[in-house]
């Protein structure tokens, strides 16, 4: 049975930020507010040692699409709003989601509220708030001379660079009062494309495929480099693997 997985080659990754930004342009995720990052892809950084023997690394993070997903288990809705597709994607259904945030609470890779420097793979869109207030703001820096968020959105869309796509479970811009997270770009994958962060990575550090197929590149890389996952002790069985090390020192 298909199990989609992603391998992130830290040796190739330069921590540049392209994947997370590309994700924001593909999935039209809103800006951070109220402790919710809405970054379906994000980064964790680590500096160790004392100068000059300092080491530094960046680790791209995203939903781990766990085989044993606590978010799915926690979802109280019937049928579940957070569920596993037959291809092993941890899917979130916008229509069924009631915004209880039990998934966010249950996910060991998420925070109900992030502080500086923290990441959360599940974010929550507050009730009764436009998805992106930045482009609903009517104020003008120079009245009558410069534009406003609302005016730009009126002439374009919200967000103005909104990438339009159709998917039965999730919208290209999600409504208020629900959670959202990486869905492995299923709207692309099912059309024979790769997730957008994968095609956008200038280092080709992200590899996507069916890990249940031992001949797939993801399976071979995980085997060859003894891929690791985040928080293995939690028993979540993540399907995002990290191989090699960020630094050669």
């Amino acid at each position: 049975m298909t199990q989609y997985a992603m391998v992130i080659d830290l040796h190739k990754c330069v921590g540049c930020g392209a994947c997370a930004l590309a994700c924001k342009t593909e999935n039209n995720t809103a800006l951070r507010r109220n402790g919710q990052t809405r970054n379906w892809a994000d980064y964790q950084h680590e500096t160790r040692g004392k100068f000059p023997k300092t080491t530094y690394m960046t680790r791209p993070v995203l939903c781990n699409h766990c085989s044993n997903a606590p978010c799915v288990k926690a979802c109280p809705v019937t049928p579940k709003a957070m569920y596993k597709t037959r291809d092993g994607i941890t899917m979130t259904n916008n229509e069924r989601c009631i915004g209880c945030r039990a998934c966010q609470d249950a996910c060991p890779y998420s925070k109900m509220e992030v502080k500086d420097g923290e990441t959360s793979v599940i974010s929550f869109n507050e009730f009764d708030q436009p998805y992106e207030p930045f482009y609903a703001d009517k104020s003008e820096a120079i009245p009558g001379c410069t534009s406003s968020g609302a005016e730009v959105a009126k002439k374009t869309d919200n967000p103005p660079h909104r990438t339009r796509y159709d998917h039965p479970d999730y919208a290209d811009v999600r409504r208020p009062g629900i959670v959202e997270k990486c869905i492995f770009c299923e709207h692309r994958v099912k059309k024979g494309e790769l997730p957008y962060c994968v095609v956008a990575c200038p280092a080709s550090a992200r590899i996507f495929g069916d890990i249940s197929d031992p001949n797939s590149e993801v399976a071979r890389l995980v085997k060859k480099h003894k891929g690791t996952v985040l928080k293995p002790g939690k028993g979540t069985k993540p399907n995002v693997y990290y191989i090699r090390s960020y630094s050669v020192k």
Partner: peptide, 11 residues
Amino acid sequence: AQALADGDEAV
């Protein structure tokens, strides 16, 4: 039965 054949313990 299918999951057993696939070795998919989670399922």
